[in-house]
């Protein structure tokens, strides 16, 4: 009977026990909800099927036996090389796998690498042309969305994947939030552009835009920097001096020459010294 009780306890514990996620450890626990939202959009959401054709529906019937089976689409594992983050590949990536070229021959390893090309894209909001490495699919997507900005703004981070695309998206969002300052010399055009793209701003708050497109390391650095700026250490000598002066005041001993305020403001004799001055000056 004892074993069953242990089992019951374990079951109970396993219900209450929650495995620590990456947002629960160390400084990461101080990351704001805005960054968590972006992380979810980038890493947790399932990207669109690019390299395989997903099966439709929830269930399918086995033609031979008539058995009903669930449809389970297991995506092909993709490799994201460092070069992916220097271009915009439109969801494509490197696939590592095997080819079985003949029935009676051993499988051979093969990498399916997308065909990359360098081309120009135009960003309306940023009012610039950019030279980027893309795939044919990216251009197709840009054309389908009627523009580079529309493509970036409409596509979730999990489909953009690359750091470059995310950074550009962040820049475009920031630009929109500030009301397109790059078109300051042409107010009509500025208004036109803002009217066209302002719908995308509704899904982000300013804080979310600030935390958008940051890698894990960058986000942690940002938190650390904010934390450091928030509690900047005050030199103890200043604290002690202030305390002493207050004590002296309480005791009724007036400073013979200077008041407490003056003392704290008085510059140190050290600062009066000029080691680089001429000899007779010092």
């Amino acid at each position: 009977m004892a074993s069953s009780r242990i089992q019951a306890t374990l079951r109970q514990l396993s219900k209450t026990y929650k495995k620590k996620s990456r947002f629960d450890i160390g400084i990461a626990s101080e990351l704001p909800a805005a960054y968590k939202k972006f992380w979810r959009e980038w890493k947790v959401l399932k990207p669109a099927a690019v390299h395989f054709v997903p099966q439709e529906g929830k269930w399918k019937r086995d033609e031979l036996t008539g058995e009903t089976l669930p449809v389970q689409n297991i995506p092909l594992p993709l490799k994201h090389p460092a070069e992916l983050h220097e271009g915009i590949w439109g969801g494509e990536a490197v696939i590592k796998g095997f080819q079985k070229r003949d029935q009676l021959r051993r499988r051979v390893a093969h990498y399916w690498v997308p065909v990359l090309k360098r081309t120009v894209v135009r960003s309306e909001v940023l009012n610039t042309h950019l030279s980027v490495t893309v795939t044919e699919r990216t251009i197709q997507l840009i054309n389908d969305h009627y523009g580079f900005d529309h493509y970036l703004l409409k596509t979730p981070a999990c489909d953009l994947v690359s750091m470059l695309a995310l950074k550009l998206k962040k820049q475009i969002l920031t630009e929109l939030m500030n009301g397109c300052p790059r078109y300051a010399n042409n107010p009509i055009k500025q208004k036109e552009i803002y009217e066209e793209y302002k719908t995308y701003l509704t899904s982000y708050t300013p804080e979310e835009i600030e935390w958008y497109g940051l890698s894990w390391y960058e986000a942690l650095c940002k938190v650390a920097k904010q934390k450091e700026a928030a509690n900047k250490p005050i030199p103890l000598k200043n604290v002690y001096r202030k305390n002493l002066l207050e004590k002296l005041k309480e005791a009724g001993i007036e400073g013979s020459h200077s008041s407490a305020e003056e003392m704290s403001n008085a510059t140190s004799w050290l600062s009066k010294m000029n080691p680089f001055g001429k000899k007779d000056e010092a």
């Binding site: 690019v50 390299h51 395989f52 054709v53 089976l69 669930p70 389970q72 297991i74 092909l76 494509e92 696939i95 796998g97 079985k100 399916w112 997308p114 065909v115 795939t135 044919e136 699919r137």
Partner: peptide
Amino acid sequence: RNTFILKRRFPPTL
């Protein structure tokens, strides 16, 4: 010269 669309020859079990 396009996106590779692949298919598993031996699909994993359910």
